[in-house]
């Protein structure tokens, strides 16, 4: 029994290791970087994490279920372009001047559709999800370029932009949205049948199938959720930048992947907690923030990021070997 509780503690630490790293980093930054130790900066870190954070939820669900979704970034970009195009007031927009609710409904529906498409090729055509979503990664951003003819859109419907500007008390709306999503999906993963099935399917599709779980439906569900979350992130991205440009969101797939791995989700599937992923997203956000305010050669930025990839992968390997020893 003593052994089992020790094991539990160790497992808890592994699941939450990103929080410890985050805490250490924030303390170090607060003590050493001028201008860092203030609520507005902490608030920035929280609200800037929203795009990486939402994509990381989508990616984490896919990876826990034993699959992969590389299309999240491009779906987000497409959604941002569609939102800006429909709700934009500049000459390159559609001229439809749609409002927040209707654009949100349209992009979320598109997210469902994309999830169904990804799911269809993975589940029915039995093509590796890496390949299917790689194709999506290439295609969906290009669809956005076709829609606007490669132009940017400036100034969109004020009720969309308001989401990026509103705070409730001292807490920005972005932070509330992100925390609500993490809370909701954490609850889903741990307290609902569907959530548990995502873990079982990720551990062994065959065992889950034999146990009577409809594996196909679980995978469809996961891809649809990933599509919808990415579309939501795109809508928020349009709100944030008050428009769109062709390269919007580029590179966030990597950041989301990094957040997922730093957060302790195993790339093998079946293992991982969203609490850790949340910490991973905040970790990346705080590093970006410190780079933005500290006076240093900007070229170091990519060195820091490169180091972070190595650290994340090493961490994942280390955690996996420790887990293996536990069993």
């Amino acid at each position: 029994m003593d052994n089992s509780s020790k094991r539990k503690t160790l497992k808890w630490i592994l699941d939450n290791i990103a929080w410890f790293i985050l805490a250490v980093l924030v303390v170090v930054f607060s003590l050493t970087v001028e201008g860092f130790a203030q609520w507005p900066i902490y608030r920035n870190i929280l609200s800037h994490a929203i795009f990486i954070g939402i994509l990381a939820i989508a990616e984490a669900l896919c990876i826990i279920s034993g699959e992969m979704d590389l299309s999240v970034e491009s779906v987000m970009a497409l959604s941002a372009v569609v939102t800006a195009y429909l709700a934009g007031t500049s000459t390159d927009a559609s001229g439809l001047y749609m409002n927040g609710v209707s654009t949100l409904a349209i992009v979320l529906a598109a997210g469902v559709l994309i999830g169904l498409i990804n799911g269809f090729f993975v589940v029915k055509m039995k093509i590796n999800s890496f390949i299917v979503t790689l194709a999506g990664y290439l295609a969906f951003r290009a669809v956005g370029l076709v829609i606007t003819g490669g132009r940017g859109v400036l100034n969109i419907s004020p009720d969309i932009v308001a989401v990026a500007r509103t705070s409730i008390g001292p807490i920005p709306m972005f932070v509330i949205i992100m925390v609500a999503l993490y809370g909701g999906f954490h609850w889903m993963l741990n307290r609902t049948r569907f959530g548990k099935y995502i873990y079982y399917v990720g551990d062994s599709k065959e065992a889950a199938f034999n146990a009577g779980i409809r594996v196909d439906r679980v995978l469809y569900g996961v891809f649809i959720i990933a599509g919808v979350l990415s579309a939501l992130a795109g809508w928020l991205l349009a709100a944030r930048t008050n428009g769109c440009s062709p390269s919007l969101g580029m590179g966030l797939l990597f950041e989301a992947m990094a957040a997922v791995v730093i957060g302790g989700v195993s790339l093998q599937g079946g293992i991982g907690k969203l609490t850790g992923v949340f910490a991973g997203a905040l970790l990346l956000s705080s590093i970006s923030t410190v780079i933005a305010i500290v006076g240093m050669n900007p070229f170091y930025m990519n060195i820091i990021r490169g180091g972070l990839i190595i650290a994340a992968v090493t961490l994942d390997t280390a955690i996996r070997s420790i887990r293996a020893k536990l069993t």
Binding site: N44, C244, G251, S288, T289, A292, I293, N297, P298
Partner: peptide, 25 residues
């Protein structure tokens, strides 16, 4: 002059940089 990088010419990177920098300065 403080020089920062918007990786991949990505607009929200520039937005975040401006947000953080103007908060500190």
């Amino acid at each position: 002059i403080d020089t920062k990088i918007a990786s991949a010419w990505e607009a929200s990177n520039a937005a975040n940089i401006a947000d953080d920098y103007l908060t500190a300065y």
